[in-house]
């Protein structure tokens, strides 16, 4: 009797691992849902011009992106083919830049606000008039540090 009981108690049961993948899957779904991916879906054509004298854009969390270009094929039926400004996930006009910069600023601490950079991601076919309008709007709100995002190349022309 004593021997029988001892036998049963000493045998540690094997760890059941069949549910492990499910647990991990749950975790992954949790992360997928909660992680906000900062990069907006770009809805405009983006063929960036090539430059050689470029600097790396540091501190990505302090960079706000403004996209300029003709809307993608899938959006052309609705938005036409003229150059549009994209802020975050939607098309916008020049006056919206003020609100955009203000809302970008409000999420940063006061020290970081000075270091904020606005990256202009502009398609190479865009006319400078549009870019100038955006730049003037940025000057008006005092977002003076800008970066013309370009592709890095060996030769610029």
């Amino acid at each position: 009797m004593a021997k029988f009981r001892k036998d049963v108690a000493s045998e540690t049961p094997e760890l059941a691992t069949t549910s492990l993948p499910d647990i991990i899957f749950m975790l992954i779904f949790f992360f997928m849902v909660t992680t906000s991916m900062r990069q907006a879906t770009v809805m405009v054509d983006q063929k960036l011009p090539v430059a050689t004298e470029v600097k790396k854009l540091e501190n990505k969390s302090l960079v706000s992106y403004i996209y300029l270009g003709a809307p993608h094929k899938s959006y052309q039926a609705k938005f036409g083919t003229a150059t549009r400004i994209q802020l975050n996930d939607k098309f916008a006009g020049v006056p919206d830049i003020q609100d955009f910069i203000a809302s970008e600023r409000s999420t940063k601490s006061e020290n970081d606000q000075k270091l904020m950079t606005t990256a202009l991601k502009v398609d190479e076919k865009v006319k400078m008039g549009m870019v100038t309008d955006v730049k003037q709007a940025l000057r008006r709100v005092g977002a003076l540090k800008i970066s013309y995002t370009t592709a890095k190349g060996e030769k610029a022309f």
Binding site: Q39, A51, K55, L138, K145, A151, K152
Partner: peptide
């Protein structure tokens, strides 16, 4: 797969300029 999805690939390069104040 998770990290592949979350990491934004590629660094941005650009010409950094200071705009004059209004």
């Amino acid at each position: 797969i998770f990290f592949l999805m979350v990491t934004t690939m590629g660094t941005d390069f650009g010409l950094i300029r200071q705009l004059p104040p209004m």
